[in-house]
């Protein structure tokens, strides 16, 4: 299949930096210049610059930019507080809101020709998921100490051989499903768009898929955030 044109890769290639031709590079520099890495940096720079430009000086009467951010941040804050309580929402708002903004922008950026979604690489989504998975265990352990592990072994001792594997499997399944769902959805969208562009790009064939792509991007970002919130609140609340 023809490679999609990624303008950052072309610029880097012109600058003489090695661009990996497979999915993963061999040398350290090649790995750093892999498209999903460069586009991750682009998304980070985009979020940083846009928020810096629109929120450079906060005013009492919000302008256009500040109004937008107040809507977004306020909406997310309400959503978190609804799902995991005021205290937890205040504590973890920076982390989860960063995830939400990053994933939403990273998903949507792939709809523009010449860009790719960093989330269409399993490396990115697995990294995000590992952070969530490890931190929900840390939250549980901090809240309940060793009692946290009691919910893995069930209510009575003779059910341990039955319940322990089930709980372990369902806990590990979170890791797998959270990462592969995001990766799979976005990768499918990207691949489908690339194929349609190649086949009938001049007849606007990718347009319907692009409309669906907007929906998928938003919903997947929301699923990730919602599940993060649910896992955190469950880890905090488990007190059998």
């Amino acid at each position: 299949m023809e490679h999609p044109i990624l303008f950052i890769s072309i610029i880097l290639e012109k600058l003489g930096l090695p661009i990996p031709h497979g999915p993963v590079g061999h040398t350290f520099l090649e790995q750093l210049c892999a498209p999903y890495m460069t586009y991750t940096w682009l998304v980070m720079a985009f979020l940083f610059l846009v928020s810096k430009l629109t929120l450079g000086n906060l005013e009492m009467i919000p302008g256009k930019g500040q109004n937008f951010w107040e809507l977004v941040i306020g909406g997310m804050d309400d959503f978190f507080a609804d799902n995991m309580g005021r205290e937890m929402a205040d504590k973890f708002f920076p982390m989860i809101a960063t995830f939400a903004l990053y994933i939403a922008v990273a998903n949507l950026i792939g709809l523009i020709p010449g860009f790719m979604s960093p989330t269409s690489s399993l490396n990115t989504t697995l990294a995000l998921t590992l952070i969530v998975w490890i931190s929900h265990h840390i939250i549980g352990f901090k809240e309940h100490g060793l009692h946290y592990y009691k919910h893995f072994i069930g209510p009575v001792w003779w059910l341990i051989p039955l319940l322990l594997p089930i709980e372990l499997i369902s806990n590990l399944a979170r890791l797998l499903s959270l990462s592969i769902r995001l990766f799979g959805n976005i990768m499918a969208k990207e691949t489908l768009l690339a194929i349609l562009f190649m086949l009938a790009g001049s007849f606007f064939a990718p347009l319907p898929i692009m409309i669906l792509g907007v929906l998928v991007s938003v919903v997947q970002a929301m699923v990730f955030v919602l599940l993060t919130v649910v896992y955190f609140s469950q880890a905090q609340a488990h007190a059998h």
Partner: peptide, 25 residues
Amino acid sequence: FVQLLANYGHVGFTFVASIIIGLGG
């Protein structure tokens, strides 16, 4: 609509992931 999708859209995937992990183990 989006909230419903977020709530129930991942049911199938989580189900399959559990089975794959159990079988793989």
